[in-house]
Simulated scan of single mutants.
Amino acid sequence: MTLFLHEIKQNRLSFLIWTFSIALMLLICMMMFPEMNTGMEDMNNMFSNMGSFTQAFGMDRLNFGDVMGFYAIECGNILSIGGGFFAALLGINALAKEEKERTAEFLLTHPVRRRTVIFQKLAAILFELLLMNVFIMAVSAASFAFIGEELAIREFLLLHGAYTVLQLEIACICFGISAFIRRSGVGVGLGLAALLYFLNLFKNISSQAEFLKYITPFAYAEAADIISESAIDMYLLALGLIYAAVAVGAAFLKYTRKDITA
């Protein structure tokens, strides 16, 4: 547990910044809804007739004038992008930083197995992501009550559940990559998260890119699908969990055999 607590303490500043930033942006968006609602019908018609842009963000399947439709489009994008980037940063730095910061020699000379190091670092990442999402969900739910709008609990929980799994998958994939690199991988992590996000946009725009839904986790976290169908595509979600498990398995195999530079 010592390493687990150390990781939590070491990441506390970035955790607080990302968590409160995302929560604040969601809160501000929700505070804007009552003011925007008066002209929402015209805005909804405008957004629904913007061709590829409309399809990319699923606005052709959601009512921008409905509070859950508004929440899914505006707040959903904030949470998916912000949460995905933070998950990537946590994962990509987890193992590589020990060599980058020259702390591997100190860490691995202690009576602790490498498997334990991997497990506790991964547990710290998953704990931080879960805690962040619980806090953001609480703030979001409170914002509905504050503006006097009814919260569709099922859709709300499904939406946040999908985003949580999305973040966990990205974190695990970046965690796996972290075991193979020796230097800072911030660019790699953020680049991967951005790539997966844009792959989902391409999938929404073109029917020929439909196969991309089997690659990007943003496909099963598609707000338009979740809100309109009140369900998550469990096949795609299960596929994402498999990708995450494979990445974690690769991290264990690589790091336990890796010639670590002190």
Score class of each variant (00 low, 15 high):
T164H: 01
F85V: 11
L159G: 02
N93T: 05
N63D: 14
V134R: 07
N63Q: 12
M234V: 08
I22E: 01
E210Y: 15
D233Y: 08
I260G: 06
A250N: 10
G191H: 05
E74D: 14
R182T: 13
R154P: 06
F86Q: 07
L27C: 13
M40V: 09
N77K: 13
A88C: 07
E98R: 09
A193W: 01
Y243D: 06
M31T: 11
C75S: 12
C172P: 00
G76Y: 00
L126Y: 14
K213Q: 14
A219L: 00
H160R: 04
I170Y: 01
G187N: 03
A179F: 01
A245E: 04
N45H: 13
I260L: 07
L131P: 08
G161E: 02
M43R: 15
E229M: 14
Y235T: 11
F86H: 03
H6N: 14
A193L: 11
F57E: 03
A247G: 09
M50T: 13
F86N: 04
R114T: 08
S80P: 04
L158T: 04
A250Y: 01
A194C: 12
S48V: 12
E105V: 10
N133S: 11
L79F: 11
L237V: 01
A238V: 10
Y163V: 00
I215N: 06
M43V: 04
A124K: 07
G84E: 01
T109H: 12
I153P: 06
A94M: 05
R154G: 08
S48A: 15
E210W: 15
F218T: 04
A96L: 00
E99I: 01
I8R: 11
G148C: 10
F119K: 15
S80A: 11
L157P: 10
G65W: 08
L108Q: 11
D42F: 15
S230N: 15
I17K: 05
G249R: 13
G51S: 14
L90K: 03
I173Y: 01
G185M: 02
A96I: 01
A247Y: 05
N49H: 14
G82C: 03
L236H: 06
G161I: 02
I170Q: 00
S207A: 13
I17W: 00
F86Y: 13
F4S: 11
Q120D: 07
Y235A: 11
A247N: 09
